[in-house]
Nucleic acid binder design. Structure first.
Lengths: 144, 144
DNA sequence: GCAAGTCTATTAGAGCTCTAATATTCGTCA
DNA sequence: TGACGAATATTAGAGCTCTAATAGACTTGC
């Protein structure tokens, strides 16, 4: 089965193009794509624990740990112990983090709006629906 | 703009599901997803130089270099100097590499066939077309 | 012939990603 | 009250990925 006939190739190619463009537009803010994804979730959910953040970003906890380490080193986030649950760290944006996030978000949203504008409402809904069926099937057949 | 409204989120999610399932079905053969991608291209193009292989797999030359190093250590490929172009290494599957590739390919193709079977011919063509428009737009707006 | 440009290969370094394993804390249930 | 289970956090280690830089070999144009 040649690679060009595989649906997976086309999905991978689109994701690759998306990632490369995101990477390029986030570069001025000094953020990587995973860092931006984490900051976006943090902006919407202040104080969220790292484990929940990892789930929201669809990565594992150790992965999020390394991303947060780099964000913390740059002073973009703070991690403070939860008042009750002593084993939980509350993660929040710093003021600097909020500024950097706003700058990065402007460029990222511009790409998303431009991408969405390539399609009619019906096409967009179709694409989302077809992709959801891909995800659903792939998860349903995953061993383990 | 909430993450759930971004087309990019759905593309990323589908690619993530694809990658996770591929990873799971390739595990018995002891191959990673990038290693399988490289072996697939090698099976179709014996003797291809690493730089061309990198382009075919949509990664950079240094990335392909690390993947090939691991494949070579396992004895799945050989890299021999090109008879004329002294700066080029011809990369080929070993006999063991061919066997491992065949075993892995069986599982990978099963996933691809199952995924394709979720859609009608028209839906499949639509999905490919919509994804291609995404890739095309994203590449056209990429700075640099 | 020689120089510039192009292509191949490689190394160095930063960052992301996973699995596996460990430690700590909280909640539940007997 | 004490033990088990679930959730959080972290470390270790392997592997992938990129950009930047270096080096060698071929090709083209003067």
């Amino acid at each position: 089965m040649p690679a060009s006939e595989r649906l997976g190739s086309h999905i991978k190619e689109a994701e690759h193009a998306l990632n490369a463009t995101k990477h390029a537009v986030l570069k001025p803010a000094g953020l990587t794509v995973p860092q931006y994804a984490a900051l976006l979730q943090l902006a919407e959910n202040p104080g969220i624990p790292a484990a929940a953040l990892a789930r929201a970003c669809r990565v594992t906890a150790p992965t999020m740990n390394t991303v947060l380490k780099n964000l913390q080193q740059r002073g973009l986030i703070t991690r403070t112990p939860h008042p009750w649950h002593r084993n939980v760290l509350e993660t929040r944006l710093t003021e600097l983090g909020t500024q950097v996030m706003a700058e990065a978000d402007e460029n990222a949203v511009r790409v998303e709006r431009g991408l969405a504008a390539q399609f009619t409402d019906e096409e967009r809904a179709q694409l989302i629906s077809l992709l959801a069926r891909c995800s659903g099937y792939l998860e349903s057949v995953r061993p383990g």
